[in-house]
Design a protein around this nucleic acid. Sequence first.
DNA 1: GACAAATGTCATTAC
DNA 2: AAGTAATGACATTTG
Length: 640
Amino acid sequence: MQIAKKYFTEGLIQLTILLSLIGVRVDIDSYLSSYYTPLIDINLGPSSAYIQTPFHILRDTLDGYGVHPKCPELDYFFASRRLLDEVRNLGSPRFPTQLSAWLVHQVSAIDKAECGPSTSNNTDTELESSGDEVRDDRQHLPDRVQELCQTSPELGQGPCTSGACGFLKQDNDVKVKEEEEPAALTQLAHSSTLEQENLLESINAFSDPARPDVDQHWNNLFSLSVTDLEDLDSLVADADIGAISQDVSLRDAMEASAGAFGVTSERTESRLRTQQQRTFFRLESTDSSHSDASPGMALGLAALPFASVCNVTVNVSSRSALGGCLDEAVFDEINQLGLETLDTMNLQLMSGLQNVDPQVVEDLDSDSGLSLESSCGGPVSPGSSDMSSSSSSSSYCDDECGATGYSSEVDSIPSKCIIDNTTTWSPVDLSESVWHDHSYSSPAFYGPPSLTLPHKGIHEESFRDDSGTRLDDRELSRDELRARAMCIPYSVLQIVNMPVEEFLEVLDSHSFSPEQVALLRDIRRRGKNKLAAQNCRKRKLDAITGLQEEVEQLQAQRDRLLREKQLTAKTMCAVGQQIEQLTRDVLARLRDNSGQSLNPDRFTLQCTANGRVVVQPVRRPAVSTSAGNKTDKRKKEKKQ
DNA sequence: GACAAATGTCATTAC
DNA sequence: AAGTAATGACATTTG
């Protein structure tokens, strides 16, 4: 049950993010707080060195808000949390998550309601193909949405009325009921586009105090019975776009829509192409980005003028449609954690939960769902990010092959060396940042980037690189070789990152020989010291860098002060000369009692405290030095 | 092969 | 007392 909860939770996060992109605010924090480890950013210093973060210890303390911020794995979790925070900042209304999820499909009726008779026809055909229950439900479902749209005029605006629906209208005029399935497919896929805008507008109206009736509209919208939703799901399934309902995949919806928007004469081909695109997108979904849109994506965009809103992961225009509330990182996050994981989650939920194979369930628990960090390409391997994308599938094979983290020679290891999968400690994979790509310390032994949120069973980690070859085919570290030689059923990464309680329990429960125990302790000590050394060196480099910067700043400050000093000296000299000249001028115009002008050498001007200027005789230094005496003597001699 | 840089390991200390 | 982080010193590996 915990596993099921975990998968639902992870899927819920993905779903929440997707829904949030269309303006639907979902509060899952209260739910997640009971399972996941919320994190907090603690500023403990400028260094971002490698830190062994005891997630396993902090998992249950303070709701996890004590996790060390230096841990590089936190970046992605912070990103996900930041994403959720941004989503919450959208100011959208809150409503139950589950219902919100269904609204993605349910509000598609808005499109039908807005698009006039033509789309209504399309809706009819669509509903006809979905069975009697749908036919019954459509009686009130579109009506409610129509009511909402009529009361909220802005809901009827947007690309639907001018573009998408017009396109649909033309399409439906040409092709009548013989194209029910593609039309429904188009309608549903397009409705996903339109409902996002409508939802955004509805949310805006919702937040408008001058529109009290919008509350009622939301209530109407939310009061849709469960049967409506289920019927809509069946409708979706009948339309052969089950991926939308099962995976809540907007991308699939876009692809389906792309097929529907294609040239009608090529409907069949378009459908096939849609399926191909869907497969293609699934394969590349984690790597898709704005800049390198795949050909399939480009095709979808070309064929679907309004796919911008559907495909929230690709088109930049979707950002404008969403009010610019989400930055590019949001889309990247969605790309990385959303669609792919939803697919895998769905499949794993279907297969794993039904088969109830404890081993498989354990595998699923190991690296599925919210693999936020797994997509990070760390220094371990350039293909580490790719590894993560296929971790869900590859983990099975690795588990079946036995102990993970061992080399290909694991086949020769006695059966007793099979990893004990019953251990339940929560590993913390620091491999992507800590385990450097040093060939004599192969990343294989540390394994690929794995789940960093509290999860169980690092044993199920996939040890494949991007090329599909087992990483443990590579060279092993010395400790890994020693562990293998001693038949230690744990990888070095496991031994090092294992919490001490678990480590001691392992030492006690496996009846290891003293040599094995010593080796385990040495491996753990060396591994931790290795991390500490890396951390220490990075800190040292940071300190050196900081000192160098400080030196440069101080040198610059010194140069600046010297320049200011020189400038000040020049200014003072110039001012002194001006004062001297002014004094001469003033004294030249003054007369003494005999009517003679004052000699500037004998008199000077002094400015008193009250601002008056007085003439004072020049005070010669009274101190007579030897040199002065000599000078006086010479003067006397000259006079004589 | 020499060399510098990077990294691993050991010993020690402090918490 | 035990575990571990931090760090200097030395060893090892790599380019």
